[in-house]
């Protein structure tokens, strides 16, 4: 496989989930795109063959660092802001015009989760990583990933039921 083919395939497979993941960290689409661009620029300089078996965790790990880095820079530039970067849960109506109501609601609930859980939910369900891979990306133990994801699911279930409770 040529580097171009490798990159093309990696983009096809991971571009969308990476941008979504980065956006859940940075809170806005443009910085998320910056982070993903950086991620792929770094990928272009890697030994593809060696990287291939753990491409997914590598991409999300690097992307996570780029996104977090970006947040730090923003904080440095604007010290008035709170240290914890609060993502913007509101999306422009145009973004979601085509998304179904359920999907919109579900995403909004995911956005409200604590930072770590939000990331794990995205990595598991949107990007399709295994617990082991998530553990590598987030630098936590596999069992911790399991516990966090379970908490997230519990919260989502409760909130979803509340939101959709019968009148």
């Amino acid at each position: 496989m040529t580097p171009q083919e490798f990159l093309t395939q990696a983009l096809e497979r991971y571009e969308r989930p990476l941008v979504s993941y980065a956006r859940s960290i940075t809170g806005d689409l443009e910085s998320a795109r910056d982070a993903v661009q950086e991620t792929f620029l770094r990928l272009a300089r890697q030994d593809f063959k060696a990287l291939e078996p753990r491409l997914a965790p590598w991409l999300f790990f690097v992307c996570r660092n780029c996104a977090i880095d970006h947040c730090r820079k923003v904080v440095r530039l604007a010290p008035a802001e709170d240290d914890d970067v609060v993502p913007d849960p509101g999306r422009s109506p145009a973004d979601d015009a085509t998304a179904s109501e359920d999907a919109e609601q579900l995403r909004a609930l995911v956005e409200k989760l604590p930072e770590k859980q939000r990331e794990i939910v995205r990595l598991k369900f949107d990007a399709g990583l295994t617990y082991r891979e998530i553990a590598d990306v987030m630098k936590m133990t596999v069992s911790h990933v399991g516990v966090q994801l379970h908490h997230a699911i519990q919260t989502l279930r409760t909130q979803w039921q509340r939101a959709n409770a019968l009148p």
Partner: peptide, 12 residues
């Protein structure tokens, strides 16, 4: 979640 979390607007 698997079916609906992805947002197609999230692209480069």
């Amino acid at each position: 979640l698997t079916a609906k979390l992805g947002d197609t607007a999230d692209q480069l």
